[in-house]
Design a protein around this nucleic acid. Structure first.
Length: 428
RNA sequence: GGCGCUAUCGUCUAGCCUGAUCUAGGACGUCACCCUCUCAAGGUGAAAACACGGGUUUAAAUCCCGUUAGCGCUACCA
């Protein structure tokens, strides 16, 4: 049975590169009806923290990339690494290396030219005569990455090691370790790296690449997963790009993974997210944006519902709501004095606005969008002006901006009282 | 430096294995037009790529070699 693992080290924030690796492992496991396990590689005593480990667990849970069975921690398996290292020393394939730092165990690197077959890169050639003897147990008794990785992948019956391309040069060392132990190495698949928008490998200086940052911006997990799945992997034909998790699982194949690195493109992710926002059911949309804003930004439920539906086609992520609709949450609109003057000094504009105010006051409420529009257009007709002559200054009076969603929908969200008081204050 | 990996529109990619169907397809982004109270959304259309140089072949984006560039490894980090 296929068994794969995601093996992050809790020494930093889990970023989208790590998520992508986890996702590909997960997709492969589900596609093959195999197992996906999680192993925390916390052998760096200096840099590993429980906080980072927690972030990994929580992020994977949020995305639904949950492991099958127990979660392993290398720091709890030290005896196993030591036992196997001792075997190697006994067989003369490794030796104690005493230095000022203490005693480490080094593996005697065999000298050979060979190759391994990668599921993505095909044949990868190597020459271990160029390699130094490898430390497998550090002087603090902890295993090094290579040693813990090999021992665990063997002990846990991992059949396929699917990891980042940056490990491709490490693989020959690990293969030598398997051979020394007399173990059969797993199959390897080295995924192309995800790069920042400047084409260099993802790092802190690319800004918000931690998964937590995407959650905070209000991306849908489905969109994120869909986007990441398509970075470095494509479906034959390649014309469709919106896939559910079930479809991704069904279509996934390591054979179709690309060999070259892929730049992370935020604009495309945002586009994909907006597609999901439009395609999920209204009920689902309401529930999820509600989860994102538990306090509804202080609005009454009916108002909130109107507002978020009005912005549904306009926001790319949930956090876009407060950015775009700030005027719906403010008590008082700040106007640019020059802009305000320009509107008010337009011939007859004050009379027009007053005429509108007078008619508006007659409307019982601003609940009905159609009624507001009809009333406003009638006012314009009576004044003998085009509707937009009045619409533009009204928009500015209500929002302090020259762009917004449809004016009448917006008025309905804001309510009669707010609209009238804002326009009155604007005129003064 | 040594060794390894990679190379199709600005970006993600389809095509490459099994050479002719590729005057290289799709998507994001960009631009134009339509719709329209502005902006989005939506619709229509446009510009935009086989890194370079050699081979092999009747024929190369596709196979081979080299060059260039980028990245990785070369830690008692993972």
């Amino acid at each position: 049975m296929v068994c794969v693992r995601f093996a992050p080290s809790p020494t930093g924030n889990l970023h989208i590169g790590g998520i992508r690796t986890a996702l590909f492992n997960f997709l492969y496991a589900r596609n093959q009806k195999g197992r996906f396990i999680l192993r925390i590689e916390d052998t760096d005593r200096e840099r590993s923290t429980p906080e980072f480990e927690n972030e990994i667990l929580e992020s994977l849970a949020w995305l639904g990339l949950e492991s099958d069975g127990e979660i392993w921690r290398q720091s709890q398996r030290l005896d196993i690494y030591r036992k196997h290292a001792a075997e190697l020393v006994e067989k003369g394939l490794a030796y104690d290396d005493k230095t000022g730092q203490g005693t480490a165990v080094r593996f005697r690197m065999p000298k050979q030219k060979a190759a391994f077959f990668d599921l993505i890169h095909d044949k990868v050639e190597f020459d271990t005569t160029l390699l130094d003897d490898l430390v497998i147990l550090k002087s603090d008794g902890y295993p090094t990455y290579h040693w813990a990785c090999v021992v665990d992948d063997h002990e846990m019956d991992i059949t396929h090691v699917i990891r980042g391309d940056d490990h491709i040069s490490n693989t020959p060392k690990q293969i030598c370790l398997y051979e020394a132990m007399g173990w059969k190495p797993p199959k390897f698949a080295h995924l192309p790296l995800i790069l920042g928008d400047d084409g260099t490998p993802l790092s802190k200086r690319h800004g918000a690449v931690a998964l937590a940052a995407f959650r905070k911006q209000g991306f849908l997990k489905e969109a994120l997963l869909n986007y990441l799945a398509l970075l470095g992997w494509g479906v034959a034909g390649g014309n469709e790009e919106i896939f559910s998790m079930a479809q991704l699982i069904e279509k996934f194949s390591l054979k179709r993974v690309n060999k070259s690195g892929a730049r992370f493109n935020l604009e495309k992710l945002e586009w994909l997210n907006s597609q999901y926002l439009k395609n999920i059911s209204e009920e689902d949309y309401l529930r999820r944006i509600g989860d994102f804003y538990p306090d509804r930004c202080g609005l009454r439920e009916a108002t909130w519902k109107k507002l978020v539906l009005l912005y549904r086609n306009r926001i790319k992520t949930f956090s876009g709501l407060t950015e775009q609709a700030s005027y719906c949450f403010q008590n008082q609109i700040q106007y640019d004095p020059a802009q305000q003057r320009a509107f008010l000094e337009t011939v007859n504009m004050c009379d027009y606005l007053n005429a509108w105010l007078k008619e508006s006051a007659e409307l019982e409420s601003f609940e009905d969008v159609g009624a507001i529009e009809q009333m406003t257009r009638l006012v314009c007709e009576k004044l003998g002006i085009e509707a937009k002559i009045l619409i533009h200054p009204l928009r500015y009076a209500l929002t302090g901006h020259s762009v917004s969603p449809g004016l009448f929908e917006l008025m309905s969200v804001m309510g009669k009282e707010t609209c009238l008081s804002r326009v009155q204050r604007f005129i003064l």
